[in-house]
């Protein structure tokens, strides 16, 4: 099988280009650190919704970086990006439906 990015023999002399990789690593580490700080400091029950929102936003932020940079999806062609992102976006409905369902099960109990 031949591939589009097959390169000629001179590439062996290239220098490693890892700046973007390490930048992504620091983003991921920072997001996880913030999650920890929030988990330990925002323990008051009144801030529960705020805390959960921060966790969710940071999780999606991390997911975006892992999929976009590490899995390289950000740099693929648009058709490929949408054929992955569009089906997966339907999960949002799945989440809402079953959270509501779970809540009403609790009411019935």
């Amino acid at each position: 099988m031949e591939h589009s990015h097959q390169e000629n023999g001179t590439v062996a002399m290239q220098k490693p280009n890892t700046g973007a990789i390490w930048r992504t690593f620091w983003f991921l580490l920072a997001a996880t650190t913030i999650e920890f700080i929030v988990a330990f400091t925002m323990t008051d029950p009144s801030m529960k919704m705020l805390r959960i929102s921060i966790f969710l936003i940071l999780t999606l932020y991390k997911a975006f970086y892992i999929v976009g940079e590490f899995m390289h999806l950000k740099h693929e062609v648009k058709v490929l990006i949408w054929s992955i992102v569009l089906p997966v976006s339907f999960i949002v409905w799945f989440v809402i439906a079953l959270m509501v369902e779970g809540d009403s099960v609790l009411m019935v109990r």
């Binding site: 079953l98 099960v105 609790l106």
Partner: peptide, 14 residues
């Protein structure tokens, strides 16, 4: 996601 959403649903029903 099915597994994790199941977790969410069962957690909400407790």
């Amino acid at each position: 996601s099915a597994l994790l959403i199941t977790y969410g649903m069962i957690r909400f029903s407790n």
